[in-house]
Design a protein around this nucleic acid. Structure first.
Length: 353
DNA sequence: AAATCGGGGGT
DNA sequence: ACCCCAGATTT
């Protein structure tokens, strides 16, 4: 109880004013938690506002079209979150008659809701006594109690969960959970935490042993692989271009893109002409690279080098396999959800102002 | 148990 | 260049 008292007292004096903290609507809390998965508050906040405005309740989200949901999500990343969000809204609307699950156990069954999110919704919306364990909690607990078990191992996950239960305050689940996360986010930060003014200073094992910067321990992650994307903007006489939706099991699933040729390295005009099966390129001189330097787009596990090519071609009069493509005008392209890489390219090359 | 899934920001 | 972020799902 001592731990919870200290951190809750700190929280009352230092908490941020965040919109999802002033409601007990499980829908809005759920929405905020999905948005905030692996996402900082600063980045997620405008998306939360957009979604609450567009979809004030679970029914509004349920009856929306997936493409529209993905468009609102554009730029936030981890797009399976948006697809699962929409799927779960439809499920609650149609299968549960619009009634939001109200226990940790039932929340856990929802697609896109894992242990953390179920605990967050259960405690914030319903006051259920379940502790949250997120990145902030790992950091605070590992330092305060000097736990050096790697947080991304089965043993570490089990151990930190036990400690989270031990320091939990079942009399005030919502505020305790908010407090420990807020303390980790604002005070016990990954880099240069405010140890000098920390209410736990005399009790903090990591601080007393000079190990603050070494905790929490996390096992190293994989190297990123390189990929080379060649996007072809196929433009006809009516100033329309071809796009397609990414349906394969890969990054950016269900987002839209220009016809794509992926290669093992950067391509020149001739090589791309030979590799391109999308359209019969009569003369490679009609195929011009638009960008000077390749765009480098960094994901957590891939480095993507992208070139954009312009191909003037009256594809409507040819026999290309057009069935997987959509023909759109430049103006209508902005209605489709695209990777931020493509959005940046469009803004730099095809939009004025 | 390890890999996959984005994008932005800090150091 | 490397790390982290109110993680979940698939392999």
């Amino acid at each position: 109880m001592e731990f919870s008292n200290i951190i809750t007292t700190w929280y009352r004096d230092n908490k941020r004013d965040l919109p999802w903290r002033t409601t007990k609507d499980p829908y809005k809390i759920w929405l905020s938690e999905i948005i905030l998965q692996q996402t900082q508050v600063k980045q997620g906040l405008p998306y939360y506002e957009k979604f609450v405005t567009a979809y004030p309740n679970v029914k509004a989200l349920a009856v929306a079209h997936e493409d529209e949901v993905l468009k609102l999500w554009q730029g936030l990343g981890y797009y399976s979150r948006a697809r699962n969000l929409h799927h779960t809204a439809k499920f609650i609307h149609t299968e549960l008659d619009g009634k939001f699950p109200d226990t940790f156990k039932d929340l856990l069954k929802l697609k896109g809701v894992g242990e953390y999110t179920a605990a967050a919704i259960a405690s914030f919306a319903y006051g259920e006594a379940v502790p949250v364990v997120d990145g902030n909690v790992y950091r605070v607990l590992s330092r305060r109690f000097g736990i050096d078990t790697p947080i991304n191992t089965t043993e570490g996950i089990k151990q930190f969960k036990q400690k989270a239960v031990k320091v939990f305050n079942a009399n005030n689940p919502a505020e305790h959970n908010q407090a420990i996360m807020e303390f980790g986010a604002l005070f016990c930060k990954p880099k240069s935490p405010d140890c000098m003014f920390c209410p736990f200073q005399s009790d903090c094992v990591a601080f007393q042993n000079g190990q603050v910067d070494a905790l929490p321990v996390k096992l190293k992650k994989m190297k990123r692989r390189k990929r080379f994307f060649n996007y072809i903007i196929v433009q006809n006489d009516s100033n329309e271009i071809l796009i397609q939706q990414r349906l394969e099991k890969d990054i950016w699933q269900k987002l839209f893109q220009f016809p794509l040729v992926e290669s093992q390295s950067s391509l020149d005009q001739i090589e791309l002409k030979d590799l391109s099966k999308i359209i019969d390129v009569i003369d490679e001189i009609d195929l011009q690279k638009i960008n000077v330097k390749p765009y480098k787009h960094v994901l957590s596990h891939q480095d993507i080098y992208a070139d954009f090519w312009m191909l003037k071609h009256n594809y409507l009069e040819t026999s290309i396999d057009i069935e997987s493509y959509i023909s759109v005008s430049f103006n209508n392209l902005e209605k489709y959800a695209v990777p931020i890489l493509i959005d940046k390219f469009m803004k730099e090359h095809f939009l004025d102002s």
